[in-house]
Write a protein that binds this DNA or RNA. Sequence first.
DNA 1: ATGTCC
Length: 470
Amino acid sequence: MDISRTGPYELRVEQQGAMRVPGVVYATRELLSDAGQSLEQVRNVATLPGIVLASYAMPDIHWGYGFPIGGVAATDPAQGGVVSPGGVGFDISCGVRLLAADLSAEELAPALGRLMDALDPVVPRGMTRGAVWDLHEPGELRRILVAGSRHAVERGHGDQRDLDRCEDGGAVDGADPGQVSERALERGLHQVGSLGSGNHFLEVQRVDAVYDTEVAEAFGLRPGQVCVMIHCGSRGLGHQICTDHVRRMEQRMPHHGITVPDRQLACAPVDSPEGRAYLGAMAAAANYGRANRQLLADAARRVFAQLLGAGLELVYDISHNLAKLERHEVDGATRLLCVHRKGATRALPPGHPDLPADLRGHGQPVLIPGTMGTASYVLTGIPGGRAFHSTCHGAGRTQSRHQAARGVSGRELRDRLEAEGIAVRPSSWRGLAEEHPGAYKDVDAVVEAGEGAGLCRRVVRLTPLGVVKG
DNA sequence: ATGTCC
């Protein structure tokens, strides 16, 4: 590979062999910790039919299924551009929702333990156990797949503002439940309103630093304020959809005359039966993910209201695992592109028409979940943002789950966090150990690189007061 | 991430 550093926060992978475009990686030397495996994936993505401008990677790049996590690639359907499930990931529409409480950390302090004890039993989590909704017939599930958090709000679990402040108004267009397999539907029935496991969490946080007071105020955030951050995805339903459609595309690639350097890059033209089928199913999983976060937010709201008499206003809800059809200007012409973001977050600039009216002057809130026990961030998109208005999505792993669990016991980690004043309500000791902060990159360095690279701007830093761990 | 291998 011909790799050159083009700036403190930028690498270029020159176009070679089957690559159709170069690779552009926004990261410091320190952040590239996995010995070039993920750079090979950047190069492989650059071979996809119809790819436009470059195969991009964000500062939290690490090795993933097919695409690197932190990968961004846009293809042009009018030029044979493909969609690849590996460019979205197994956890379709994994994302983050941030709510701001009308309460300061000082006011909360005496009640923090009681708050965490009250959240513990009402936030379903772990691999298989329980959910806010346990559906028994697929009719309501199909409604969720089409209407996303709009359905939860129609059932009384939220209000219009929740929809206004959610990406795509609470539901993405084009969902096609007919492309969701029976098995995926079965898996989805009993998991609506659940965190899952791994790096998913519900945290009670405090606004620790404000970098831009005007934008923070527009987002509804002030120093010392209590927030709730929810990080989760589309559970077994999204996983099954990815599995089903990768298999189907693998079988059909010869028919489309597509070859890829890694079978995990299975893909199909956006304008093909397989491409449309995947995008319809993917949109359904995206809506499931939003309904999931809406119900968990509603559960947290009930606890805050009952115990503290405090409200929780939605700041924003944004996915970091999704492909979307978006209009972008390329070489002076506006084109409709299929933008894959896998472990990368959309970051719309001020003035963008897709932003809610009350945020339009300030840019999109970009929500970055940290690792348990470390900071999280709110960023915003900037004019001229690179990589089709995208930025990082979080810290990014440096150790495997197995490695991480060897380093520390769950109980030891809980004690360490509690000693730092962070209340922890785990779902399993093993799961807790796998998520210890040392297994991840430094989220502060990731965010600094994102700003340095011209992808986004910092607005607010949040630190954890209590963690309900998936 | 994931009923961590139909």
